[in-house]
């Protein structure tokens, strides 16, 4: 029963929502509004789960004194410190909370993502060394698209921005459309599997 009742909730509510998409009746719309109110009341507790998970992982590392456990202390202090600063001084502009965002979180987030520029360059070099026709097509397309977005592209040739635009609007569109159709069919199939109770991995292990 510990698995059957949750499964039954998904199946019954799932079919009600599938019908709701086709039947825009007031009763159906009211039911959906009620469901959204419930979901909004449930959602903040998901963050609680995330905080608990992070705290448990790092406190276990500290307790067992695993290699580099000192960084877990830093993580937990940063977590508690940022949260406390937000609760004590508020989250408005000009507070220590926003100072932490502007001078700690935002610079590190941007730098983390900018690191990828170096790894992408390294990956492009490795792909070019493979010397396959497909890898060459990929790199030539990438080069033209990049040059088409910057002023130097039009200085090299007036055709570069036009070829770049053609690549984006024709072969790229066909590729994206083919993949989107596959993704859509996959999503529909997976949703149907959940709805019919065939896919049950989200219930987790145990009884």
């Amino acid at each position: 029963m510990k698995r059957q009742i949750p499964l039954l909730i998904v199946i019954i509510l799932g079919f009600i929502f599938a019908i709701h998409t086709f039947v825009p009746h007031k009763v159906s719309a009211d039911f959906f509004d009620w469901y959204q109110t419930w979901i909004k009341a449930i959602s903040p507790f998901m963050v609680l789960l995330g905080i608990m998970s992070l705290t448990m992982v790092h406190s276990t590392k500290i307790k067992r004194k695993v290699p580099n456990w000192q960084y877990s202390v830093v993580t937990l202090l940063s977590l508690v410190g940022t949260g406390a600063v937000g609760f004590i001084w508020g989250t408005q502009e000009g507070t220590p909370f926003m100072w932490l965002f502007k001078n700690v979180q935002m610079p590190m987030g941007a730098t983390m993502f900018s690191l990828l520029a170096f790894y992408i360059a390294s990956a492009a070099y490795k792909a070019f060394r493979a010397r396959s026709a497909e890898a060459t097509v990929l790199l030539v397309a990438a080069m033209i698209v990049m040059l088409g977005q910057v002023p130097i592209g039009i200085k090299i040739s007036k055709w570069i921005p036009e070829i770049s635009s053609w690549i984006l609007n024709v072969p790229n569109l066909a590729a994206k459309r083919g993949i989107a159709l596959g993704v859509g069919l996959g999503m529909t199939a997976t949703s149907l599997k959940i709805l019919l109770g065939i896919e049950r991995t989200y219930l987790g292990g145990g009884d």
């Binding site: 903040p44 963050v47 995330g50 905080i51 992070l54 580099n68 960084y71 877990s72 830093v74 993580t75 937990l76 202090l77 940063s78 977590l79 508690v80 410190g81 940022t82 949260g83 937000g86 609760f87 989250t91 909370f97 932490l100 965002f101 700690v104 979180q105 590190m108 987030g109 983390m112």
Partner: peptide, 20 residues
């Protein structure tokens, strides 16, 4: 490693007051 640890903690800590 230090910056990474701070980033994880601050990112999660940033979400708590906002979600509240």
């Amino acid at each position: 490693k230090f910056a990474e640890a701070v980033f994880i903690g601050v990112s999660m800590g940033y979400a708590i007051p906002l979600i509240y």
